[in-house]
C-alpha cells in the first residue's frame, strides 16, 4: 500500500542547501543522510511513495520521540552504508539514518564498522510510509538511550525479481548523480502540501 493509494494529499519537499555539514553538538539529535538524487532527480521511491512523504514520515517519527533531526545530503556516494555511517558520525548522539532514492534505508551508529548497522531495510519495494515513521522513531529512541524493538521488516521473495531490474536502473542513475567533490551538505527541508 503506497501513500498515494491511501489518498494522502500530495506534498512537496522544498530543499535548500545551508553549506557543508558539521558535527552536531546536541546529544539528542539524529542525522538523516539522503543520497545524491533524493528529491532532486527522483521524487518517488521504487514503489512510488513520494520522497517528500518519506522525509515527512522520518521527521515525524523523530519528532514524536522528542528528539531533534538534522538532514544532510551525501553528495559523493550512492553507497547506503557509507551514507548512513557518515550521517551517524555527524550526529551528536552518534545515531544516523541513511536513505537512498529508491527507498532502501539503514540506521547506523558512529562507532560501528561501516559495513555493520543497527537496522537495515534492504527491500525498498516493501517499505511503507509507516515503516519510515518507525525508522525515525527507532533512530530517535536509540539516540535517547532507549532500547526499541527493531522495526519489523516484511520479506517477500517475489518482490525481488519483480523489482530487480528497476532497482538496478535506479541505482545507476543515483550513481550518475554523484558529485565527487560535493562532500556532505546540510539541508533545510520544508514539506508543504502541494498548492499551499
Amino acid at each position: 500500500m503506497t501513500s498515494t493509494e491511501t489518498g494522502r494529499p500530495e506534498r512537496t519537499a522544498e530543499i535548500t542547501e545551508k553549506g557543508p555539514a558539521g558535527r552536531g553538538e546536541r546529544e539528542d539529535e539524529v542525522v538523516l543522510g539522503i543520497s545524491p538524487a533524493f528529491c532532486s532527480f527522483f521524487t518517488k521511491t521504487i514503489s512510488n511513495i513520494p520522497l517528500a512523504e518519506v522525509l515527512r514520515e522520518v521527521m515525524a517519527g523523530v519528532e514524536e520521540q522528542g528528539v531533534s533531526l538534522r538532514i544532510v545530503r551525501v553528495k559523493d556516494s550512492s553507497d547506503l552504508a557509507k551514507i548512513a555511517h557518515r550521517a551517524a558520525r555527524l550526529s551528536g548522539s552518534g545515531i544516523g539514518v541513511g536513505i537512498l532514492s529508491r527507498g532502501t534505508s539503514m540506521i547506523h551508529q558512529k562507532d560501528l564498522a561501516k559495513l555493520s548497522n543497527l537496522e537495515l531495510f534492504p527491500q525498498a519495494p516493501l517499505l511503507t510510509p509507516e515503516t519510515f515513521r518507525a525508522i525515525g522513531s527507532n533512530a530517535a529512541q536509540y539516540a535517547k538511550g532507549d532500547s526499541p524493538a527493531p522495526v519489523p521488516v516484511q520479506n517477500d521473495f517475489m518482490a525481488r525479481p519483480r523489482y530487480q531490474a528497476k532497482a538496478a536502473l535506479l541505482h545507476l542513475k543515483e550513481t550518475e548523480m554523484i558529485e565527487p567533490d560535493g562532500g556532505i551538505v546540510e539541508l533545510d527541508v520544508s514539506i508543504r502540501r502541494a498548492g499551499s
Binding site: Q109, D111, A113, L118, Y142, D146, S147
Partner: peptide, 11 residues
C-alpha cells in the same frame, strides 16, 4: 573492541 550491534542499547 566494539560490542556486537545487536547488543547496542540493550540490557
Amino acid at each position: 573492541e566494539p560490542l556486537a550491534p545487536e547488543l547496542f542499547a540493550r540490557v
